[in-house]
């Protein structure tokens, strides 16, 4: 189940629009990349070669979008086995997915919110366990940003903890999502992070978002990371150590220099935390 590739430091989400400028000359600041396997499985030609060139140089991790692990329609076993093959081909040390669903018998290609109920905990955890079985490895599950709660019988933090425990999986802690949700659903983001199972955090996501006129936040991954989210990341590091951390940027991509400055900012926060006075209890799985 263990993989020899050691993952640490700061990574960048790899979009097709930036791969052309990266595959021959990977900036030193980038310790790893992340892709959505559903964008790359069975893709060859120029794009396939560029991706292979990248995964031969630095670790590549995978962040799925179409699994619909919280959905009620049958799991797509072919997809899972193709993901397994993709992970093996690229020696990808991590696969993560969202704690959500996207399939209603057909794909909606988006991350829809699950009700925070015991029924949903049981349902999604047993499916995550099945996926892990088919993959032959653990996966990490991400706390999504959500705009409504279809039914709330427990808190979001309890929901996440219950799923991670029942499924025996890892957590991809998306710090931006914690911030977005804390604003949209009025809770204390630091308190939320305190409630997360620190020992299960495989890695962290950082991103920017869009604030509408009335303060409502839409998680677009289309803007720079804002200061309060940087502060929340520093708080998280102080609490749980410095797991590998990835910058996601899906829209309105700025110049590479700007992206790199955010990747470097992640690194510098990690290094500050890792100085002797910092509490660096975390060792990434």
């Amino acid at each position: 189940m263990k993989t020899p590739v050691k993952l640490q430091g700061a990574g960048l989400g790899l979009r097709r629009s930036i791969i052309d400028s990266l595959h021959e000359n990977i900036p030193e600041a980038i310790d790893f990349f992340e892709v959505a396997p559903e964008n790359w499985i069975n893709v060859g030609g120029r794009l396939g070669k560029q991706l292979r060139a990248i995964s031969e140089q630095v670790p590549l991790i995978t962040h799925g979008l179409s699994l619909s692990v919280g959905g009620v329609h049958p799991l797509d076993k072919e997809l899972i086995l193709n993901i397994r093959k993709f992970l093996d081909t690229h020696q990808a040390p991590l696969y993560s997915e969202h704690l959500s669903y996207s399939n209603d018998g057909g794909q909606l290609y988006d991350l829809l919110p699950l009700p925070f109920t015991e029924e949903a905990v049981q349902h999604v955890s047993s499916r995550i366990a099945q996926v892990q079985e088919l993959l032959g490895r653990r996966m990490a599950i991400e706390n999504i940003s959500y705009y409504v709660v279809p039914e709330q019988a427990m808190s979001e933090a309890d929901f996440i903890n219950a799923v991670v425990k029942e499924a025996d999986c890892d957590l991809l802690l998306d710090v931006n999502n914690v911030y977005v949700n804390s604003k949209n659903h009025q809770y204390d983001p630091e308190e939320f992070i305190r409630q997360m199972p620190a020992e299960r955090v495989a890695y962290i996501h950082m991103a920017g978002h869009y604030v509408e006129d009335d303060g409502f936040i839409v998680d677009t991954h289309g803007a720079d990371v804002i200061d309060p989210v940087w502060k929340l990341l520093a708080f998280t590091y102080g609490l749980i150590g410095t797991p590998p951390t990835l910058l996601e940027r899906d829209f309105n991509l700025p110049e590479m220099e700007q992206l790199l400055s955010e990747v470097k900012q992640i690194k510098s926060l990690q290094q500050t935390q890792e100085l002797p006075h910092g509490r660096s209890a975390h060792s990434a799985a």
Partner: peptide, 14 residues
């Protein structure tokens, strides 16, 4: 979106 249930999980196949 209304009438068709796209099944592929792979974005390039949409």
């Amino acid at each position: 979106i209304r009438d068709f249930k796209a099944e592929t999980p792979y974005f390039p196949k949409l």
